[in-house]
Design a protein around this nucleic acid. Structure first.
Length: 200
DNA sequence: CTCTGGATTAGCT
DNA sequence: GCTAATCCAGAGC
């Protein structure tokens, strides 16, 4: 029998997410993403996130309006937006705002806390630092794919919990990664000095 | 309908 | 540093 989790995770309520994507991205650094799968718990502390807006943000999927793929970005906050890219990868976003404008936060990297052996198996990798250090890696480790698009994030099988840490993370902002437009905006938020970032 | 390229990663050079 | 892997949304015709 596997040892029980030593920490109890409580999902953040919807109101936590009803702020702008930029504000939400900052708030999410240090919180814990929790995945329940096959009676097992996976948990990781978010150390890197990027904000994406709506018609004001050319780097956003929602820039050109609502489509079948990006419609979750126009929802009110607290839901997942999972999309497929590069023919082989999924990325996980947290929808932000009240629903009046589009917006979401891409979760780019996290620090493994619990269920590390399952993450290693899902990733087919043994190195701790290589488990969650990128948006597609994180999805693979957490078994996040298309069927989890649009689900609420305040209950299993996937939710986000307040940081277990007492000391708040030291947050640094940088331009977003892997985009061509909107590089002037410093909408990437990282836990400065974390060993588990996608890009240092 | 067809075509292009992407909020990426891994593996090789 | 370079690029294959591999699907589908979005744009153009």
């Amino acid at each position: 029998m596997k040892k029980a989790a030593t920490i109890t995770y409580t999902p953040l309520s919807k109101s936590f997410y009803e702020v702008s994507p930029v504000r939400l991205a900052r708030k999410l650094i240090g919180t814990v993403i929790v995945r329940i799968i096959d009676n097992n718990i996976l948990a990781a502390r978010i150390v890197e996130a990027e904000a994406y807006g709506g018609s004001d943000d050319p780097a956003s999927h929602a820039y050109r309006g609502k489509t079948d793929r990006n419609k979750m970005m126009f929802n009110s906050g607290g839901y997942s937006y999972v999309y497929f890219t590069y023919g082989m990868h999924y990325c996980f976003n947290v929808v932000a705002g009240t629903g009046r404008t589009a917006g979401a936060v891409l979760i780019r990297a996290a620090e493994p806390l619990e269920g590390i052996n399952i993450m290693k198996k899902n990733r087919n990798r043994d190195t701790l630092r290589d488990l969650l250090s990128g948006p597609a890696k994180l999805c693979q480790a957490f078994a996040i794919e298309r069927s989890l698009n649009g689900i609420p994030l305040d209950r299993p099988p996937l939710f986000i919990s307040k940081s277990p840490n007492t000391s708040p993370p030291k947050i640094k902002t940088t331009p977003r990664i892997g985009i061509k437009e909107g590089i002037d905006k410093k909408w990437r938020f990282v836990d400065a000095g974390s060993e588990f970032l996608s890009v240092i």
